[in-house]
Design a binder for these strands. Structure first.
Lengths: 139, 139
DNA sequence: CGGTATCCAACTGGATACTG
DNA sequence: CAGTATCCAGTTGGATACCG
């Protein structure tokens, strides 16, 4: 109790956790890789094939980050040709389980979101025209 | 059943859902805004103060996207001075609930992850030196 | 008060070529 | 096979100034 906590709300606490979790799995590929390791260890090229669309560069970077965070392990087998396998740690497994509710939510609401977007865009189309430049930046 | 599904695994299905959910809440601010609306409707400037660190530009953009996706509603009160309030929709509330397990996971494992990173970085420091360029890119 | 417009620095991620 | 190196396009997001 340092007497300076003017905001005892839990939202404050959430902020740093959201940063942490988004910094770890908020990127384009991490969760996909984690899911592909769920059934057991896999090799680099297996992952590259099954994640589909990922480049070597991104797969390597994603695996390194997840390894650094203790989500998975990297095992090098010194044979010819080279053989490297990746496997989830116990922590990695619990992470994946923690993402399941969000995944279920997504499955349930994807259609509703599409709907909401279509309605929003339709309403936006009926807005009064701008003086000169129409599309505002479009970024 | 187009007979061409060579991969009946559910991972395939997850991919598009992860994209969808990350496209919606995987950015820097969305989840923070959603959390701040949990206790009830709030005004633009209240949100700007309580999210702390967010710029007008990003708060506006974040709110627009969440509104478009049906996560929250925007209500304009035509008084002087202007008054706009934002509130979670039922869908927004369920979204927030779906993120709770991930938040709890984060709270439980933050220290472990820091630990894993420190160990990884220590091991990386003991690696044999590269021929010329040491830090690989570091962009 | 609640935005919009503009500019710009930093980061993400894809394509390609090369290495042990 | 499993990376690493380089280059480059596209996007994110902050600072600032201005508007209804």
């Amino acid at each position: 109790m340092t007497a300076t906590d003017s905001e005892p709300e839990p939202v404050r606490q959430d902020a740093s956790r959201f940063r942490a979790v988004l910094g770890m799995v908020g990127d384009k590929w991490s969760l996909l890789v984690v899911c592909n390791l769920e059934e057991g260890p896999r090799r680099f090229s297996e992952l590259k094939r099954s994640v589909d669309g990922i480049s070597q560069r991104m797969l390597t970077a994603t695996l390194r980050n997840l390894e650094r965070d203790g989500i998975l392990t990297r095992t090098v087998h010194n044979v010819m040709p080279p053989h490297v396998s990746y496997a989830l740690t116990p922590m990695g497994s619990t992470l994946r389980e923690a993402t399941l509710p969000l995944l279920e939510w997504s499955a349930e609401h994807l259609a509703l979101i599409d709907d909401a977007r279509a309605q929003y865009d339709t309403r936006a189309d009926t807005r009064p025209p701008s003086p000169s430049g129409s599309t505002p930046d479009s970024r």
